[in-house]
Simulated scan of single mutants.
Amino acid sequence: MTDVFDFSAPLLAGGEQPLAAWRGDVLLIVNVASECGFTPQYEGLQALAERYGERGFRVLGFPCNQFGGQEPGDAGQIRACGTRFGVSFPVFAKVEVNGTEAHPLFRHLKEQAPGALGTQGIKWNFTKFLVGRDGRVIRRFAPQKKPSELVQAIEVALDEPPPGPPSGA
């Protein structure tokens, strides 16, 4: 069965990044945008990354321009937004999260954690997906859900034991 760690994506700074680099960590995967009303959530996401980083928690940001054209910039402009909010977590190159050109990672995330009423489409920027240490998608959070409101779910995920070696190893 496919899990999140089977995917890779291009980084904003260039090069392809396998998500397997974070195997065994808890991930919060977020589609971000520089000119969105939710953009100040970058601060909260960074606070979570700092608070739980030593326990194996990682935030991964994926810029997307599919919602109101709120991520129109190039890599330099996206990086400047992250700098403005003190972001040190990985930010990937701009991706699509819906439609036929959706990045395979986001197709997987949406299949594993449908939204309200079972819909798969992502409705707006700053939709968040919590992923367990075993690579399974635990839960989807709506854009309105502030990073600080995810603390309980993150702590539960961090308290799960790390996965054992793959069967047959």
Rank of each mutant, 00 (worst) to 15 (best):
114 P>G: 02
114 P>D: 05
114 P>E: 06
114 P>R: 04
115 G>N: 00
115 G>I: 04
115 G>P: 02
115 G>C: 05
116 A>C: 01
116 A>K: 13
117 L>Q: 12
117 L>M: 13
117 L>H: 13
117 L>K: 11
117 L>V: 06
118 G>P: 03
118 G>A: 06
118 G>Y: 06
118 G>C: 04
118 G>Q: 04
119 T>Y: 12
119 T>E: 13
120 Q>D: 04
120 Q>H: 14
121 G>M: 13
121 G>H: 13
121 G>Y: 10
121 G>P: 00
122 I>K: 02
123 K>C: 08
123 K>H: 13
123 K>G: 06
124 W>M: 04
124 W>K: 03
124 W>A: 03
124 W>D: 02
125 N>I: 04
125 N>W: 09
125 N>S: 06
125 N>L: 07
126 F>I: 05
126 F>G: 00
126 F>R: 01
126 F>S: 00
126 F>N: 01
127 T>M: 03
127 T>Q: 09
127 T>G: 02
127 T>E: 10
127 T>K: 01
127 T>S: 10
128 K>E: 09
128 K>D: 08
128 K>Y: 09
128 K>W: 11
128 K>I: 10
128 K>S: 08
129 F>N: 04
129 F>E: 08
130 L>A: 07
130 L>K: 03
131 V>S: 03
131 V>D: 01
132 G>N: 01
133 R>H: 02
133 R>Y: 06
133 R>Q: 05
133 R>N: 01
134 D>N: 13
134 D>L: 06
134 D>S: 06
134 D>H: 07
134 D>F: 09
135 G>I: 07
135 G>Q: 08
135 G>V: 08
136 R>H: 13
136 R>V: 05
136 R>S: 09
136 R>N: 07
136 R>P: 00
136 R>C: 03
136 R>F: 06
136 R>T: 11
138 I>C: 04
138 I>H: 06
138 I>M: 12
140 R>K: 08
140 R>V: 02
140 R>D: 01
142 A>T: 07
142 A>M: 07
142 A>C: 00
143 P>K: 02
143 P>T: 00
144 Q>R: 14
144 Q>D: 09
144 Q>T: 13
145 K>G: 01
145 K>N: 13
145 K>Y: 03
145 K>Q: 14
145 K>M: 12
145 K>L: 14
145 K>E: 14
146 K>M: 12
146 K>H: 14
147 P>G: 10
147 P>A: 12
147 P>Q: 11
148 S>I: 14
149 E>Q: 15
149 E>M: 14
149 E>C: 11
150 L>D: 11
150 L>M: 15
151 V>K: 14
151 V>R: 15
151 V>Y: 08
